[in-house]
Amino acid sequence: MPFDVPVIVVKPSRGWVSLKLNELWHYRELLYFLTWRDIKVRYKQTVLGAAWAIIQPFFTMLVFSLFFGRLAKIPSDGIPYPIFAYAALVPWAFFSNGLSQSSNSLVDNANMLKKVYFPRLVVPLSSVISGVVDFILAFTVLLGMMLFYGIYPTINVIWLPFLLLLTLTTSLGVGLWLSAMNVQFRDVRYTVPFLTQFWLFATPIAYPSSLLSDPWRTLYGINPMVGVVEGFRWALLGRDTAPGPIILVSSLVALALLVGGAFFFRRLERSFADVV
């Protein structure tokens, strides 16, 4: 007999368990297909279809411009308020949609969890990644607005992929915690809309973080979305706000959220099929 026959040992696990990232890699095609499914299905049977990906951040931008920009006269670091808000709303929409999709992902795919084995991490991961398409759509509008306002990006734009990754990490990190808890406590489903709403105002989207002075401004980066938003404005709109320290703090927090979330998820995973 060949020696490369895989041996699977099935036995009860206790406590914290390994992430089994190699197995996750092995199942990358499933990740691809689930992401692809989420993308294809997302706007089925809607009249406006993928336009929703643009409508959401765009109309929020209009409302913000009217109330915060015009009426409340909130400063925008010398940039036209609409693009100041929109440049933040594009990554925000990616984050908040990814967060709510992934939080509900396990419950929504309950039947799959009960009938087939695969690394469960694939489920929330694919629901966050599938949001990238929406991000790209909303981003093209951002490019259009930049042309309109005559704002050209600086060389710092090369950091954009990293900033997108930071958004994804934050979204997935929080999504892992929430999705695993959602399996046991459906309360999570009702908490997420609140959470994203509060988080929206806790992030400098409608206002600039430069309202704070320095030790506090850097510390503000504990909310990883602060780093993302400031980074986007810095890279695209050419604001010389030196967001480096904020982004560093944000990246560390996001990474901690992700790693902690992944272990927490794996720990709860053993009861998913029984309780979902």
Binding site: V5, P6, V7, I8, V9, V10, K11, P12, S13, L113, K114, K115, V116, Y117, R270, A273, D274
Partner: peptide, 13 residues
């Protein structure tokens, strides 16, 4: 491997 056993073990080759 959809659900874990409470006791004992199984080996699958």
């Amino acid at each position: 491997r959809i659900t874990e056993p409470t006791e004992g073990q199984a080996e699958i080759y």
